[in-house]
């Protein structure tokens, strides 16, 4: 049972990681909660479903296309909704409310266009999982694990070595100061939405294959995604992936002893614990004791 719980935890963690990492990129750069991030994944999933059901395009075209659409979606949301609000000096609370409105709008739109019932995406054959050490894992689950691992290393390298990663953190810290050092803050913010939403698109594809498609699929995962980002440390993009695995494993080992219905409660309890004891998360930077007059 241990190995099955371990695998269950890793798979759950991987799915949370897909949502958390994209969200983390957007949050660390823009410093407000983009709740509609889950909807980006949902829109991507439905787009995939629509293309797959109506056009006989090959998969190697459809998957990248879906990711592009997701990136475009995120970009437009930032350009048309958030940016005008930011120009009017809206507080992050206002932006959060706007993101909630966007989330409700797009989730409902998907329901209106496609119906509320669960859509099944039969792209790959289903069947019994592969047995490893007495536990079962399906091919799609293996793919998800590998993808997330690659994503983790990619984001870690990005954060540590690429200038854009540092620039994003600078912009998130102080967009005005960034501008005076010659950084085009607005363009950097655009990129954060493009990259973050592209990852959400990838999330939408993988979640659709593993859990099927329904209007609230992305939004449901935002709670865990957000929790994972907090646990990992909101200033650390790869940290959000670690946080996701911590969450996934805790949830799945937790229910060894508790009734399974408590799984979501575990997410909330972890979130609370971190917010109270270590709000900067595992990898977040301790802001130091000096008085910040910045």
């Amino acid at each position: 049972m241990f190995f099955q719980l371990l695998i269950n935890g890793l798979i759950a963690g991987s799915i949370y990681a897909l949502i958390a990492s994209g969200f983390s990129i957007i949050y660390t750069t823009n410093k407000f909660v983009h709740f509609a991030h889950g909807s980006t994944a949902t829109v991507a999933a439905y787009f995939l479903y629509w293309i797959f059901s109506n056009f006989g395009l090959p998969l190697y075209l459809v998957f990248p296309l879906t990711i592009l659409i997701a990136a475009l979606f995120g970009f437009l949301v930032h350009l048309l909704i958030y940016l005008p609000l930011k120009k009017r000096k809206s507080s992050s609370v206002i932006l959060l409310i706007a993101s909630l409105a966007l989330m409700a709008f797009f989730d409902n739109l998907m329901q209106l266009l496609f119906g509320a019932d669960v859509k099944i995406l039969s792209i790959f054959p289903h069947g019994k999982g592969i047995e490893i050490l007495g536990a079962y894992i399906t091919p799609i689950q293996i793919v998800i694990l590998i993808v997330v691992l690659l994503l983790f290393f990619g984001l870690w390298a990005f954060s540590k070595y690429s200038k854009l990663g540092k620039i994003m953190r600078a912009v998130s810290d102080n967009p005005e100061l960034a501008k005076t050092t010659g950084i085009n803050s607005i363009r950097v913010q655009h990129w954060s939405f493009v990259i973050g939403s592209a990852i959400a698109g990838l999330a939408g594809i993988l979640i659709a294959l593993e859990h099927n498609i329904e209007p609230a699929m992305g939004t449901h995962l935002m709670i865990q995604g957000f929790t994972a980002a907090v646990i990992g440390g909101v200033t650390s993009i790869p940290g959000s992936i670690v946080g996701a695995y911590v969450l996934g494993l805790t949830e799945n080992f937790g229910i060894w002893f508790l009734p399974s219905g408590y799984k979501s409660a575990i997410a909330f309890v972890l979130l609370l614990i971190f917010l109270i004891i270590r709000p900067q998360g595992i990898f977040g930077i301790n802001q130091g004791n000096r008085d910040q007059k910045m």
Binding site: M1, Q4, M217
Partner: peptide, 9 residues
């Protein structure tokens, strides 16, 4: 949409 925990038990 995920019953793996229950089924594992």
């Amino acid at each position: 949409r995920d019953l793996k925990a229950q089924l594992t038990k």
